[in-house]
Design a protein around this nucleic acid. Sequence first.
DNA 1: CCCTGATTCGC
DNA 2: GCGAATCAGG
Length: 194
Amino acid sequence: MSWTDERVEQLKAMWTEGQSASQIAKSLGGVTRNAVIGKVHRLGLSNRAAAKPAAPAPEPKAAKPVIAPEPVAEPAPEPQPRVEPVAAPKPIPSPTARREPPPPTPAMVEDAQRTAQALAAMEKKAKRLNLLELTERTCKWPIGDPATDNFFFCGLACQPGKPYCEAHVAVAFQPMSSRRDRDRNRNRSAGGFR
DNA sequence: CCCTGATTCGC
DNA sequence: GCGAATCAGG
């Protein structure tokens, strides 16, 4: 494979998007991550921050004996994306409805909201890998609608032995013990099978 | 061990 | 120009 205009174009796009060299290599196909990195350097876009025309201040090396405090720019607080507070249980008297579903306890609602928020926040950090880019150690948590072109997988580093990253493992493998209303089922004991 | 980018240097 | 090998680091 050679660096056709198209391939170079994709390389530039993905690199400026923040994709890793190995991811780009996989996506392009026929090249290794080394090849990608080499090309990146030859193209002179090794510094991803170069996306901004703003000169990074040439730093007048002439005379600067004093190390100024240099107030670093704050990343900004960024308020968490508030998830719509779940509305109160709708008492919709559906004609076909037979029995009222188990009323969610306030604790359950809060819990759901928390995980929902956490999940929403994570979708931003996701590496957005497609199916072919997944490996045995990339988080396979799906994000988006599979029927859409806007579908991808989390792709962050897997938790050892797990199919998901740490955060997604947390929501995927919630211990049964957290369900504190288990002793309620004591009633129909034995039952089992026959 | 998995991964990342950076650099070198023979081709 | 290219990229494998290597280096340095997380």
